[in-house]
Simulated assay, not measured.
Amino acid sequence: MVAKSPTVQNDTGSPIGATPVWNAAGMTVATAAPAVSTSPYASGDVIGAKMTFAGMARDVGGSGLVQMASISAKSTQTFAAELWLFHTDPAASTFTDNAAFTLAADDFDKVAAVVPITDWYAANGRSYAQAAQLAMPYKLADSSTAMFGVLVARATPTLGSTSDIKVAVKGLLD
């Protein structure tokens, strides 16, 4: 009698080695398209304004991991930036487009992560930047499923139009 090998399955119930089925449950992509200036930015300036990334938790006060952050631009860009992410609305701070990034002392403890974004890819006059494989844990405020963000220039970009960029945050929800 020939012994039969056990069938090992992945978390979707498919046998390992079979065509994989990606189970998207628990993944989220939240986007924001801030109005921006076409005047040159200085390093340290806010690009746009405070952004809200809705749906970053299944329930209020939820948690997860920021897996990736990206910037899509309708023009060719190569600037370095930081995406400051907050688990609670940084309401004590005012973030003004094309003005210096200033974080109020009352909001400093609300920082969930700071994502450096430096790698850009261009095609047909448009560009895309990303920071991937982040695995940055967060826990949101007890009253929200949203995360908040502020994009800060770390170079001197000039954007092509007032609707030039879209920022995305991809998360894995608990």
Rank of each mutant, 00 (worst) to 15 (best):
T162D: 14
M56G: 04
Y128A: 00
M51T: 01
T162G: 11
V21R: 01
L83W: 07
T78V: 14
V150S: 06
N23Y: 03
A168R: 02
A54R: 03
A54H: 04
G62N: 10
T145V: 10
V167A: 02
L65S: 12
L65V: 12
V2D: 10
I165Y: 08
F108V: 11
A129Y: 00
G160W: 05
K4W: 05
Q9F: 15
A33G: 14
V150H: 04
D45N: 15
S127K: 10
P137S: 07
D11V: 05
Q77Y: 01
A24W: 10
A3F: 10
G44H: 05
A122M: 08
V36N: 12
D45K: 06
N23P: 00
K170D: 09
A42E: 11
T52K: 12
K50A: 09
K74A: 15
A3W: 00
F79D: 06
R58F: 09
Q130W: 06
D142W: 02
A155G: 15
V46R: 09
Y128C: 02
G17I: 11
T78L: 07
T76V: 12
N10R: 05
G125C: 07
V36C: 09
A113Q: 08
V46Y: 08
A92P: 03
T76L: 14
V29R: 10
R154N: 14
T38P: 05
A49V: 02
M68L: 14
A141V: 11
T31H: 01
L172S: 12
G44N: 08
R58I: 06
A33I: 05
D45W: 08
V152W: 02
I117Q: 07
S14A: 15
E82D: 12
T28M: 05
D97S: 06
S5N: 08
A168T: 04
F79Q: 10
T96I: 11
P90Q: 12
F95S: 10
Y41K: 04
L151S: 01
V8A: 15
A135E: 07
F86L: 13
D97P: 06
I165D: 07
V111M: 12
W120K: 04
S127I: 05
A42T: 13
G48P: 02
Y128R: 02
W84P: 01
N23W: 00
